Simulated assay, not measured.
Amino acid sequence: MSDLYFGTDLFRELDRLQRQMSGVFGSFPSSLRSSASGAFPPVNIGTTDESIEIVAFAPGLDASKFDVSIDKGLLTIAGEREPSQRASAEAGRQYAQERFSGSFRRVIELPQHADPDSVQARYVDGCLLVSVGKREASRPRSVTVQ
C-alpha cells in the first residue's frame, strides 16, 4: 500500500501545482508540448511515401530573403524579417508586440533516409514549402508473391 494519500481529487491537486509553478515560472510554456518562445517561423513536418514535407509559416517575407540549406542531415531555414513601417513609426505608443521581426534561423534534423540531392523549395501564400525526397532504398515497394 502506498504511503501517499490525497484527500481530494488527484487531478485537482496537479492543477493546483501547475498554477503554483506558473506563478513561479510565468514566462515558460504551460505544457511540455508547447513550442519554445520566439520560435520563428513555426513549422509543420510530415512525410509521404516519396518525401519529407516541411512547411514554415512566414507571412510577409520575400522569397529571396530565405536561405535554405542542407548539410550533414540538417535542414537550415534562415532569413530576416524587417519591422513593419507602422511599428517603427509608432514604436513609442505600442502596448504589445507579438509580430516577430529580426533575423531568424531554424534547424531541423532530417531522418537518415532523406536524400539531400532531391530538395525543392517554394514560397506560396506566406508559407515556405520544402520537400526533401527520400532515398530510393527507403521507399515502400510492393513484393510479388510467387
Rank of each mutant, 00 (worst) to 15 (best):
L17I: 15
D9H: 05
L14N: 08
A63I: 07
D62E: 09
A78H: 02
S30L: 09
R139Y: 07
R105H: 03
G46E: 11
L32I: 15
P41Q: 02
Q97Y: 05
Q18V: 03
S34A: 15
G23R: 09
I45G: 02
P41W: 00
P29M: 01
S2P: 04
E80V: 12
S101Y: 08
R105S: 11
D117C: 06
I45W: 02
R16M: 04
A87Q: 11
S31N: 15
P29Y: 03
A96F: 11
S131I: 05
R139V: 08
S131N: 05
Y123K: 06
A63S: 13
E13P: 00
G23I: 00
L4S: 10
S131L: 06
G46T: 13
L129R: 09
S88Y: 04
A114L: 05
G133A: 05
A121M: 05
F28A: 11
R19A: 09
P59C: 06
S2V: 12
S51G: 04
R99N: 09
I108V: 13
V124F: 09
I45F: 05
T47N: 11
S84A: 12
V68G: 00
V43T: 15
E98W: 09
H113L: 10
I70D: 00
G92W: 02
Q85Y: 08
Y95C: 12
Q20T: 04
Q94M: 15
R122H: 08
I70R: 03
V68H: 01
G23Y: 00
G46Q: 04
G7D: 10
Q146K: 11
I54A: 00
P140A: 14
V107K: 10
F104Q: 01
R99T: 13
G126H: 06
K134C: 08
V24A: 00
T47R: 09
S64V: 10
P140I: 15
D125V: 07
A121S: 12
A63Y: 03
R141V: 10
R106C: 02
V119D: 00
G133D: 05
M21H: 05
S69D: 11
Q94F: 14
T144N: 11
D115T: 00
S31Y: 02
R106L: 13
S27L: 10
F6W: 07
R12E: 15
A137L: 10
S103A: 14
L17Q: 09
A56D: 01
R105Q: 14
S37M: 10
S27G: 13
Y5H: 10
K65F: 06
P116F: 06
E80Y: 07
Q120G: 14
Q18P: 00
L128F: 03
S131W: 00
